[in-house]
Design a protein around this nucleic acid. Sequence first.
RNA 1: GGCGAGAUAGCUCAGAUGGUUAGAGCGCAUGAUUCAUAAUCAUGAGGUCCCGGGUUCAACUCCCGGUCUCGCUACCA
Length: 677
Amino acid sequence: MKKFKRYLVTSALPYANGPLHIGHLAGAYIPSDIYTRYLRMRGEDVVSICGSDEHGVPITLKARNEGVTPKEIVDRYHSLNKKSFEDFGISFDIYSRTTNETHHKTASEFFQNLYNKGEFTEKFSEQYFDEEAGCFLADRYIMGTCPHCGNEGAYGDQCEKCGSSLNSSDLINPHSTVSGTTPVLRKTLHWYLPLDKYEDWLRKWILEDHKEWKANVYGQCKSWLDQGLQPRAVSRDLDWGVPVPLEKGKGKVLYVWFDAPIGYISATKELTPDWEKYWKDKDTKMVHFIGKDNIVFHCIIFPAMLKAEGSFILPENVPANEFLNLEGDKISTSRNYAVWIHEYLEDFPGKQDVLRYSLCASAPETKDNDFTWKEFQARNNNELVAILGNFVNRTLVLTNNYYKGQVPEPGEKNENDQNVLNEIARIRTNVETSLESFRFREGLKEAMNLARLGNKYLADAEPWIVIKTDPERVKTIMNIAVQITANLTIILEPFLPFSMEKLRGWINIDKRVWNDAGCHDLIKPGHIINKPGLLFEKISDEEIEKQMNKLLATKKKNEESGQKVVPAKDTISFDDFTKLDIRTATVLEAEKVPRTTKLLKLRIDTGLDTRTIVSGIAEYFEPKALIGKNISIVANLEPRKIRGIESQGMILMAEDKDGKLVLVTPAEKVNNGSVIK
RNA sequence: GGCGAGAUAGCUCAGAUGGUUAGAGCGCAUGAUUCAUAAUCAUGAGGUCCCGGGUUCAACUCCCGGUCUCGCUACCA
């Protein structure tokens, strides 16, 4: 394995439109922090980089909703999240932001550089502009008729019917799915990164040279590469972001995916004038910690950018984690369903390590995992308190009782003593192996084995009994117990930094380097230790219930408030209304449209006729359960072909709070074809 | 529908290149113990290794088919 001279560790830039929650921590920041702290203890040259990602459309939308400027939004969450990280002990060397000057400059230059080298393809296109919404429309927000096959339900980027890929300007009779209005064409210029050009080396670099990447990461990349890469626009028509640094780029900004990863570079620049040795020297090992939603950007797109630029190194590994669920449900920022870090820190002051432990011990390393408060409690009470805290406590209490806190001189060691002492070094090696392979769960478990070893040693040696008959022997036993404790402060430091600092205070030693781990004489005889406190305290059922109730309350509130009520539409005339032919009908047959997930093909009796309607409701209804149902339809909607089947009308559905579709049915049975008015 | 990842004890997870009684931690049971926050230590009970086929002397491990979960994607007038 190659030996690197220094490390560059990056952690996904959290998007500054909401607070941080446990999913963020478990996915990226806790592993990254453990890794970084470990490397620092090894004396490696390492910088850990992070910052807020503060550009992009969602932030402008949130700002608009709240009637404030985007800047106010990002300021709010940048400072909140920066503080959360600090308070939680995530030890970035810098936590920057993408709205600052250095970043704007760096991103501009990066763009300019690629532009000068001719790496971009430049393309004028007629883009649709929604005059009502006041913005350009992404292709997928536009629908219209396919110029090739006449399919009226073609999207701006692709026609599903004939499979041809389109530009929205090709569509006949386009309409905006944002406002429903007809957008107007405006000419606009954009720059594209031709990812297809880089496919060959990406394929070799990932699929051949990095087979050691985690299966989820490797598989995801392979999937993308096998599907074939497309050029991607690096600019957007928007006013919130890094301006395109070209005369003809006025009014345009760098697309957020292009801008954000450059944030790693600009943050490093801000941190040190020596930033180039971290980014451009082949002896630097770069590692990106991210969640699985970010794999394609960090494994394919960003490396393509770096390679295109030419002077940058590429990541050695991208240990992406899967997702964390919460009490069986998905974490949701918008629905406020999460354990927020800033709230946790208030509710459990001084218990950063408990959450660090809990999230690391059940991190979603290989598959999605579920965080439950009960498990959190169990991890604390049964492991941190009972195994680790207890061992430390009994060692320090005994040392104080027997020797007034003065570490005794060891006598002759028996075979078991030797075995136990030797075991420390073995545990250290195991932890190293785990951490260096990004297996943090395993590393933590292994580190905890040292505390288990300590408990067992005391139980076997029984100093509280031997003291009565052979006090000399007890000196050896207690010396060894103290050495184990001192080793704990090293081996657990990356995982539980707050607690180990506390523990070092009690045993009255300074922070030691990783290489000291395994030593049998970290603390010299005669050394005086301090009075200990409790390293961890039990967490009561009441505290846990309180947290669980909080989540239940959120759920309940979400249910009550229901889904967002969409704004009222414009007034229409009575004539407009009478144009609609809404009537009752009965489902005669129902079957799934093959090779789709959502589509059902229904045969219905409208009173006038029997006809076919294709409807996107397959996720909510068993076909046969629909047969015989009384429904309401729009009977005079112009027919349209969906997946090659002509759909003659539309079934009326209502959506409940969970997004589930519900049939709109007459309260009492009426004849088919009865007009709804 | 396409692609990717996953499915192993109550829970969280290990199980290179197929090979005797499938492992760990926590939980549970029993016993021991009392220095310790009723903590610890020992022992033990728990598994159709998602299902169905196949290859093989031998499959949790390989092949084929299927089911379920998650993600990306398509689709949803």
